[in-house]
Design a protein around this nucleic acid. Structure first.
Length: 425
DNA sequence: TCTGGGGTCCTAGGACCC
DNA sequence: TCTGGGGTCCTAGGACCC
């Protein structure tokens, strides 16, 4: 999203000057999945507000999806973290209320949020299901005070949709994002360059965008513990140790970032993937082929919907020891055919599989191009047009009557889901 | 004890060509 | 028989984000 747009040190001043007049908001839904569950349940008349009790949105333990996806503030106070196992969460808080996720609902709320925001500016970049950037640059005649505007937007969302957001304001996306993360929930914060030293530098270095659990310990070994430590560190040493990533996080620590707010229509998708953890370990080729087929079904449906073709297919595996490995192949043609992608995925699995027990499998297609003109491989069989027509027919039936309206007979009585996941944040 | 899913980008190492 | 180096492409793996 920020793209790895490293500004060389010579442009440092220039960057500040360029950004000086920009007005960027970052809107972040507080504990999104949980807030949306709570808002929806209250809308249906529930007297319990999940946000006010220790609660989490979590997957199903039985089918090995048992992790925390979102937590309430009281759950956070018990020490519960997003991503940890429900087992651990329950240990920390025995009275914890766990509700299953409902991705359709989240997409609905996300769309409603965007509809409200669109009333204020057309320059919106949806960064994820619960976050987006807004650009108000050049709109000073309409909105004189950005902070007052943020309060108005925040208030409307709360009143009309029933959940709270944090809004961060600055003159670039990075600072706006860090601002929205400062203190939660239901708050508006500014983080202008003049406030970096006071508001951002005292924060732990982990609070910086792109500093995750692998990078943080490496920085600590260099005695870099706060964002300020990183900002003041020798940039050349960071470059030497971490390559371009080093100069990027150094720039971020100094508040330097100048990417544009890009509305969704200007963002080209780079890859489409679907992976799933099975309730049981896959130990034979026949089951693997079935799992790969339903993964390919959703991936290729989405590929065709995006009006793209792909020329790279990848298969990933995670075994029962939690070791990940993968296999990929570049094609010398482009395709969006379910059967074709599936055949390649099966070959890749066969080549790569080490014979171990597989808990998670994934299929991903990339190196996409528009399907406006389809270059049919010289060596393609003559059924290409027929296969495309078949895929299109199946897509139409599924979109009209639902995913399960038409199911391949190999899934009948197989104990597997014919269509998997496919929700897109 | 149990550990999701959807993305983007970077890098090391090897193959291959000139 | 033993020896270059530069460039590009591909694969596998891993980092980060939500």
């Amino acid at each position: 999203m920020f793209v790895y747009n490293i500004i060389e040190i010579g442009n440092y001043r220039g960057n500040i000057m360029e950004n000086k007049n920009r007005v960027i908001f970052h809107v972040d839904v507080n504990s999104a999945f949980l807030s949306w569950e709570a808002a929806y349940r209250m809308h249906l008349g529930s007297s319990i507000d999940l946000r006010e009790i220790p609660s989490v949105v979590g997957g199903d333990v039985e089918s090995r999806h048992g992790i925390v996806l979102a937590k309430s503030m009281p759950a956070k106070e018990c020490g519960i973290k997003t991503g940890e196992t429900l087992y651990k969460a329950r240990e920390k808080c025995p009275e914890l209320v766990i509700v299953p996720p409902n991705f359709q609902l989240y997409i609905m709320y996300s769309d409603e949020l965007i509809e409200i925001l669109k009333e204020y500016t057309p320059d919106i970049q949806k960064f994820s299901v619960d976050e987006c950037f807004l650009d108000f640059t050049g709109m000073e005649h309409m909105y004189k005070d950005p902070v007052a505007l943020a309060y108005e937007i925040k208030g409307r969302i709360k009143k009309e949709l029933g959940f709270t957001v944090n809004i961060g304001i600055s003159n670039n996306k990075l600072l706006a994002k860090i601002a929205s993360d400062l203190k939660k929930p239901d708050m508006v914060h500014t983080l202008y360059p003049s406030q970096i030293e006071e508001k951002m530098w005292p924060l732990p270095v982990e609070a910086l965008f792109m500093v995750g659990k692998a990078t943080a310990p490496k920085l600590h070994r260099l005695n870099i513990n706060t964002i300020g430590d990183l900002a003041r560190y020798d940039r050349n040493i960071l470059k030497q140790k971490f390559k371009s990533f080093g100069t990027m996080i150094w720039s971020f620590a100094n508040g330097i970032e100048n990417s544009q707010v890009r509305s969704d229509s200007h963002i080209d998708v780079k890859c489409i993937g679907n992976s799933t953890t099975q309730p049981f370990d896959v130990k034979d080729m026949e089951t693997a082929r079935k799992v790969l087929l339903f993964l390919c079904e959703t991936v290729c449906l989405r590929l065709r919907n995006s009006k793209n073709l792909c020329s790279l297919v990848a298969v990933s595996m995670r075994n029962s020891e939690f070791i990940n490995y993968s296999r990929q192949r570049k094609l010398d043609y482009y395709t969006d055919s379910t059967i074709k992608v599936w055949n390649i995925a099966c070959e890749l699995f066969k080549e790569g599989w080490k014979g171990d027990a597989i808990r998670n499998m994934g299929v991903r297609v990339s190196k996409l191009c528009s399907n406006d003109f389809m270059q049919i491989s010289m060596f393609d069989d003559r059924n290409v047009e027929k296969m495309r027509a078949l895929d299109k027919t199946i897509d139409n039936i599924r979109m009209k009557y639902g995913s399960y309206a038409i199911v391949r007979c190999s899934f009948l009585n197989s104990g597997l889901n014919a269509i998997n996941g496919g929700y897109r944040l």
